[in-house]
């Protein structure tokens, strides 16, 4: 039981549509796992079930915290799941547009800090120290992600690629053990994608997180992933190393048709 995330038999329905059908998945510590499949295969739905946005119909989600404690995530609200150490980005960027870049990251620190209303009003030493810690650690993350120049810009004014990176920075601020990236390279040009490729590797090494990513850019997926899960019509159709998956006939069929 070393897996950081262990999902068994996860299913989800939308009306009569079976969006996820009995999906199993596991992620080991510090592993980069990719989730691929044609559009509508249920990948984002899978993420939404993991992070508590949709309640799954059946199946179990277990996560192991860095302390070694196993906990079941089914039925928890999204914020509790984030507090347990799972952070995510969104397929269509969901930053806080009217806040600055730094503030976006500072929000990520919310669940690791505790100042309340009274603390905010009276500002005792502990609260001031906490605020300082939030600012410093947010700066640090932004520096590592190459966003130092824009810390005080409004998030909505950032170029697209930087917005994607800011989403990752914000997720990192929640101090996750597992980072879920939903199509991080979508809309990026080849150069930006190559940079992202390096960045994701770097994040895994520096923050010692496991990464589960949904991505359509096969070059990125093949070069980054330790293992790949392939989904189609809500079912898992293959799993293995990039080399194995590339040769798998079911995968080839799913992508290229008969």
């Amino acid at each position: 039981m070393t897996a950081i995330l262990k999902v068994t038999g996860l299913s989800m329905n939308f009306g009569g549509l079976r969006a996820l059908d009995d999906v199993d998945l596991r992620v080991e510590p510090r592993e980069i796992v990719a989730l691929i499949g044609p559009n509508g295969a249920g990948k984002t739905t899978f993420f939404n079930c993991l992070t508590g946005i949709y309640p799954p119909v059946s199946g179990t989600i277990f996560m192991r915290a860095s302390s070694g404690k196993q906990s079941r995530l089914n039925g928890l609200p999204p914020n509790k799941i984030t507090a347990k150490g799972m952070a995510r980005t969104f397929q269509n960027i969901r930053l806080f547009p009217e806040m600055t870049v730094l503030e976006n990251v500072m929000i990520g620190c919310h669940c690791r800090t505790s100042a309340g209303i009274l603390g905010a009003v009276f500002r005792p030493r502990a609260v001031r120290a906490e605020e300082q810690r939030i600012v410093d650690s947010s700066y640090k993350i932004l520096t590592r992600l190459g966003l130092t120049d824009v810390v005080n810009d409004l998030a909505r004014n950032l170029p697209y690629g930087a917005q994607r990176r800011l989403e990752i920075a914000r997720a990192l601020a929640t101090e996750p053990a597992l980072l879920l990236l939903d199509e991080p390279a979508a809309g990026m040009n080849p150069r930006e994608t190559a940079e992202l490729n390096q960045l994701i590797g770097k994040i895994r090494d520096i923050y010692e997180v496991a990464i589960l990513l949904i991505e359509h850019d096969m070059k990125l997926v093949m070069s980054l992933s330790d293992r790949i899960y392939v989904m189609e019509y809500g079912r898992r159709i293959a799993v293995g190393t990039p080399v194995e998956v590339k040769k798998n006939p079911a995968v080839i069929k799913a992508y290229l048709g008969e």
């Binding site: 992070t51 946005i53 609200p77 999204p78 914020n79 984030t82 507090a83 952070a87 995510r88 969104f90 969901r94 930053l95 806080f96 547009p97 009217e98 806040m99 503030e103 500072m106 929000i107 990520g108 919310h110 669940c111 690791r112 800090t113 100042a115 309340g116 209303i117 603390g119 905010a120 009003v121 500002r123 609260v127 906490e130 605020e131 939030i134 914000r170 601020a173 929640t174």
Partner: peptide
């Protein structure tokens, strides 16, 4: 002081995007 605090930032985040706000670990 409130709007310039952890709680105040969380309020603004809630206003800006409720789902992202929750995903950041804020108890809505």
């Amino acid at each position: 002081r409130l709007q310039d605090s952890r709680i105040g930032r969380a309020w603004i985040a809630l206003r800006e995007d409720e789902i992202a706000c929750q995903a950041m670990g804020i108890d809505k």
